[in-house]
C-alpha cells in the first residue's frame, strides 16, 4: 500500500498493518523534518503531491520491491501539507521472513520514492527566504540544488 496523506501519520498503526505469521522481520524507516539543509537553518516545510500519479508510481515501486526481494508486506505513506521540525514526513515499513530482504527492500522503497514519486518540498528558512528543493536554475541560491 502506497498512500499520500494529508493527516499526521501513526507509525504504530502502520506497523501493525504489516503483521503476518510468515514474517520474521520488520524494518521501518521514518523521514523526519530537520532544522537545517545545506548549512541553512530551516523553520518549516511544505510538502505537495500530485496524489493520483504519486500513488500509482508508489504502487509500482512496491510491486518492484516484491519482485526483487523476498518480502511479505510493504507499506509507504508520504505526508503532504505544512510540516514543522520533527514532524514525520514519510514512513516505510517492510516485513519479510528474514531480515536481509526486509532491510534491502526498505532501502529500495525509500530511495525510489525520493527519486520518482511526484512529491515536492518547499523549505522555509530562518532568514525568510523559501526554496523548492531540486528546482533551482542558474542564478538561484545554490542551497536549493541539493536534495
Amino acid at each position: 500500500m502506497f498512500r499520500i496523506s494529508t493527516e499526521p501519520l501513526d507509525p504504530a498503526a502502520l506497523q501493525r498493518s504489516l503483521a503476518d505469521a510468515h514474517a520474521g522481520a520488520c524494518v521501518t524507516f521514518e523521514g523526519w523534518v530537520r532544522d537545517h539543509n545545506d548549512g541553512r537553518p530551516v523553520l518549516a516545510l511544505d510538502y505537495e503531491a500530485y496524489a493520483p500519479l504519486a500513488e500509482k508510481e508508489g504502487a509500482r515501486i512496491l510491486a518492484e520491491a516484491r519482485e526483487k526481494f523476498a518480502i511479505v508486506g510493504a507499506v509507504c505513506i508520504h505526508r503532504v501539507g505544512s510540516l514543522r521540525i520533527g514532524d514525520l514526513a514519510v514512513w516505510v515499513g517492510v516485513s519479510a521472513a528474514h531480515r536481509g530482504a526486509a532491510f534491502d527492500a526498505c532501502r529500495f522503497v525509500i530511495d525510489e520514492t525520493k527519486a520518482r514519486v511526484p512529491v515536492w518540498k518547499k523549505e522555509h528558512y530562518a532568514d525568510g527566504d523559501t526554496a523548492w528543493i531540486n528546482c533551482a536554475t542558474r542564478g538561484d541560491h545554490a542551497a536549493a540544488v541539493k536534495s
Binding site: 500530485y50 514519510v90 520518482r116 515536492w120 518540498k121 523548492w132 531540486n134
Partner: peptide, 10 residues
C-alpha cells in the same frame, strides 16, 4: 496534462 518539476519527496 500535468508537468512534473524535479521531485523532492522524503
Amino acid at each position: 496534462v500535468v508537468f512534473i518539476p524535479p521531485v523532492a519527496g522524503g
